[in-house]
Design a binder for these strands. Sequence first.
DNA 1: TCTTGAGTCTGTAGTTCCTACAGGGTTTAC
DNA 2: GTAAACCCTGTAGGAACTACAGACTCAAGA
Lengths: 147, 147
Amino acid sequence: MNSHKSDFTIGTLSKYSSVNIETIRYYEKVEIMPSPPRSEGGYRLYNEIHLRRLSFVRRSRELGFSLEEIRGLLTLVDDKSYTWAQVESLTREHLETTRKKIIDLQKLEVVLDDMASKCDGGHVPDCPVIDTLFGETLFVRSLGAFS
Amino acid sequence: MNSHKSDFTIGTLSKYSSVNIETIRYYEKVEIMPSPPRSEGGYRLYNEIHLRRLSFVRRSRELGFSLEEIRGLLTLVDDKSYTWAQVESLTREHLETTRKKIIDLQKLEVVLDDMASKCDGGHVPDCPVIDTLFGETLFVRSLGAFS
DNA sequence: TCTTGAGTCTGTAGTTCCTACAGGGTTTAC
DNA sequence: GTAAACCCTGTAGGAACTACAGACTCAAGA
């Protein structure tokens, strides 16, 4: 029960994970994060394992995974009761989703990069791309890449 | 006002875009999608431009962009009043975000791919990875890649 | 033409995933 | 030992959907 020198409170965890305090408590409530031990006064005490797990959750959220999907990924870590078949299908499913997302993002990257470079160093009046781009070109090109 | 042969109702748009009907109407309300023309009886009538725009929105949402960010991207398409400096900074900002997301997803892909292949063809008892993986290995490795 | 059933309309209420207080207790640094 | 900074448990709000309810529209067949 006495704290290790590596334990830290929720504010510190929040700072290093870039997840705000209320969200951390919310994740505890919905069981994405475990209930950590408490100090005598009732403060939550975290360690680096918590920090890594929370960082993983944050990044996964930014990448568009739902809490439910993240829960699934984390269950692969937490739960030893899965059968191999379940593990494989879950893993391959996430792998599939991940690959599709990469492809979509790369398409978007190409469009944005091209757009930024086309006007490189130009001023507004010198940049003829601006008209066509805003008229229809970007729309057709970028959305075309996504269809 | 009379409909083109290429016009279609919200159900069709929903089907082809994989965005459900209520969400489409919600996007109209919050001005992510324009108010389309209506049939005499009041049905919304869409065309392929709407379909492309909506598909772009859906994919961007799946990639973790907020409606506000998507609104920004779409404004590059819709609005001709931006200055070049604004366009460049907006575009580069999104490009930056996009590249970071790609990197994170590729890290996750490596972990998942490795995990799936390690047990390839194995049954539960034959697969020693299952214990270590579920004990700590996946956690440390995957979350380590994300930290 | 009339009917029937699938599709659509508006509006409101619920869900998920946070986010922001309020009112109070705890820690730490001087 | 006391102020400032921190944390606690609620509860209420916002963003982005999602799911009805009750009414209207439309296309196709008897």
